[in-house]
């Protein structure tokens, strides 16, 4: 049986990053769980409705111990959305998926015992999650940010661009979600460059280039010579055969206008 596709629109697949709380247990686990209970007692509902990732890269536990830990956490109403630093063999069906590539953000300050009750209550809904917070009105989040004891313990400089000084060869892929990618050289047939921001190629694009991969519709693609197999901006893509033949081999910039990829030659 074959399905006939009547709708020619392509499916848009995007990446998006969210902020999650990371719990890093230490050994012995009983001890750590006791401290967690202590925290929960101080601020009821600290983990409620909050995406929590379990980081077990620092503890050596086996699959059974991990399962047990997950059950213990579930009993405490801590829902684990993903596990970081686990070996593939430790994760089975029914367990949260493995997560990797996490980037550090500011630490969550845990409420202290001495704090008054009002602070404890509101601390239950500290909404810093970037998209999670969208459920609540913006101002609400703002006021909480002002009132709440969230301190920026560590601010890492955000890398905004990546410069590659050599050609990207066939079979290689450059993935840089944080910002722009500049290639001093060509992107070969069978190679790919995926960037969160714009992509600049001081050479020919013969492979695939995807800009604005995390949902950035203002990202652009620039190249000295357009011979690409595929270009994409913000999930909208264009194959070589869909491109205007007059652009082929030319210096070109590509950008997004609504749902259409626009292109013009650079003089």
């Amino acid at each position: 049986m074959t399905k006939v596709l009547t709708d020619a629109r392509s499916i848009r697949i995007k990446g998006r990053s969210f902020l999650a709380v990371v719990l890093s247990p230490d050994l012995p686990l009983d001890n750590w769980l006791a401290r967690l209970d202590d925290l929960a007692a101080r601020s009821a509902g600290f983990f409620l409705d909050r995406p929590v990732v379990l980081d077990i890269s620092e503890v050596s536990i086996d699959k059974i111990e991990l399962k047990d830990l997950l059950e213990q956490l579930a009993e405490r109403n801590v829902r684990i959305m993903g596990i970081e630093g686990a070996r593939p063999s430790m994760l089975g069906p029914g367990m949260p998926p493995a997560m990797r590539g996490g980037k550090a953000a500011s630490d969550f300050e845990v409420p202290e015992k001495s704090e008054d009750k009002s602070a404890q209550e509101s601390s239950g809904q500290v909404g810093v999650a970037t998209k999670q917070g969208a459920k609540q009105p913006e101002t609400d989040t703002d006021s909480q940010l002002r009132n709440e004891p969230i301190k920026v313990a560590e601010v890492r400089p955000v890398i905004q661009s990546l410069v590659i000084n050599e050609p990207v060869r066939s079979g290689q892929s450059v993935i840089f979600a944080e910002g722009d990618v500049t290639v001093i050289g060509s992107v070969a047939s069978g190679a790919e460059v995926i960037a969160g921001g714009s992509v600049h190629v001081y050479g020919a694009i013969r492979g695939r280039v995807m800009a604005g991969s995390l949902g950035n519709a203002t990202a652009r693609i620039f190249c000295r010579k357009l011979e690409a197999e595929l270009v994409a901006i913000d999930g909208i893509y264009k194959m070589a055969e869909d491109m205007d033949a007059s652009l082929r081999g030319q210096p070109v910039q590509l950008w997004l206008d609504g749902d259409i990829i626009m292109a013009e030659t650079l003089s």
Binding site: R169, S170, G171, Q172, A188, S189, G190, A191
Partner: peptide, 8 residues
């Protein structure tokens, strides 16, 4: 193209 892959 195969040579390009090998160079990589």
């Amino acid at each position: 193209r195969d040579s390009d892959r090998i160079i990589g």
